[in-house]
Amino acid sequence: MLETVLDIFDNFWVALGAKLLLVALLIPLIGMVIGFAEIKLSAKMQARMGPYFAGGRWGWAQLIADGIKFFQKEDIIPDNADRPVFKTAPMLVLVGTVALFVVIPFGPGLIFRDLSVGIFYALAISSLSTIGVLMAGWSSANKYSLIGGLRAAGQLIAYELPLVLAAVGSVIMAGTMSMSGIVEAQITAGYPYVIFQFVGFGIFMVAALAELTRIPFDMPIAESELVMGYLTEYSGFRFLFFFLAEFANMFTMSAIAATLFLGGYWLPGIPTETLEFVGPVILLAKVFLLAFAMIWFRWTFPRFREDQLQTLAWKWLIPLALANIGATAFFKVVL
C-alpha cells in the first residue's frame, strides 16, 4: 500500500506538484509562526499584552485575521504608477524567497534539490528580491517610495558582499558548496563550524539583517522618515506579499546561517541514524533561535543612518570577512 503511494511520487510531475504544494503551504505557515512570534515577543519586551482576542486564546488567530483583512481590501494602484512593474514587484520579491527553500536541507535527503553549487545558488537568488524592491520603489510614482527603493538598492548591494564573503569561510572548511555537503562535513568533523567561523557567523548575521532590511538596517522602510519607504503605495494582498516575504526571508536566512555555521539539522551527540526524523526539528529549533535574536534586535535598536550603514559594510565588515577568508584558507592548508 505504502509502496504504491510512494510509486506515484516517482512520476516527475506528481513529485513536482507535491513539492510545490508543500512550499506553497510552508511559506505562509512559517511566515505566520515567525510573524506571531514577533508580535507576541515585541509585546513582551514592551510591557504590553499584544493581540489578545482573535482566536480565543493569546490572540493566536491574529495573523490569520490580518491575512483575511488584506485580501478583503481594495486593490489600489496609483494613477501614475507603472502598472506592470508595480504588479510584478511583489511577486518577484516572494519568488526570491520561495526559490531559497530549494536548497535548504531539513534532514539527510530531505532537500528539494541538492545542488552542487547550493550556497552559491542561495546567495545569488536572494539578490533577486532586491530587484523586486527597487521595482516597487521605482514604479510607485511616489518620492518616498523612490528614495526607499534606491536606499534598498544601495544597501543590498553593499551587504551582498559581506554576506557572500562570510559564507566562503564555511565553504572552504567543508570543501563543498552543496548545502547538504556542508552539513555532512560538519557531522564528519564532529563540531559545528561556528567554533572556528565565529567571525564569519557574526558578519553573516549582521549582513543578513541588512539583507532583510530589518532594524537596525531598515532604512528602506524607515517609517519615521520615509513613511513606509518602497511599501508606501502598496496595500491589500500586494502588501501581504511583501509581508510574507519578509517573514519567510527571516526563516530562509536563519536556515542558511544555521546550515553554514551551526551544523544545520545535526546536533552533536544525536545519533546520525535518527536524523531523518529529528533533523527537521533540530533545524527548526536553530532557525527559531536565530529568528528570536533578529526580533530581539529589532525591538532594541534604533536604525543607522544611510552613510553609517555604508561605512559599516565597506570599512569594517568586508575587510573583516576578507581577513577571515585568508585565515581560514591559511589554516586549511597548514593544518
Binding site: 515585541s42 519586551m45 514592551q46 510591557a47 504590553r48 532594524i215 537596525p216 531598515d218 524607515a222 517609517e223 519615521s224 525591538w299 532594541t300 535598536f301 534604533p302 536604525r303
Partner: peptide, 16 residues
C-alpha cells in the same frame, strides 16, 4: 524621540 530614530521600545517605558 527614540521612535523617530527607529527604536520603538523606549516609548512604552516612558509613557507608562
Amino acid at each position: 524621540y527614540p521612535l523617530e530614530l527607529g527604536a520603538a521600545t523606549p516609548l512604552f517605558f516612558a509613557l507608562r
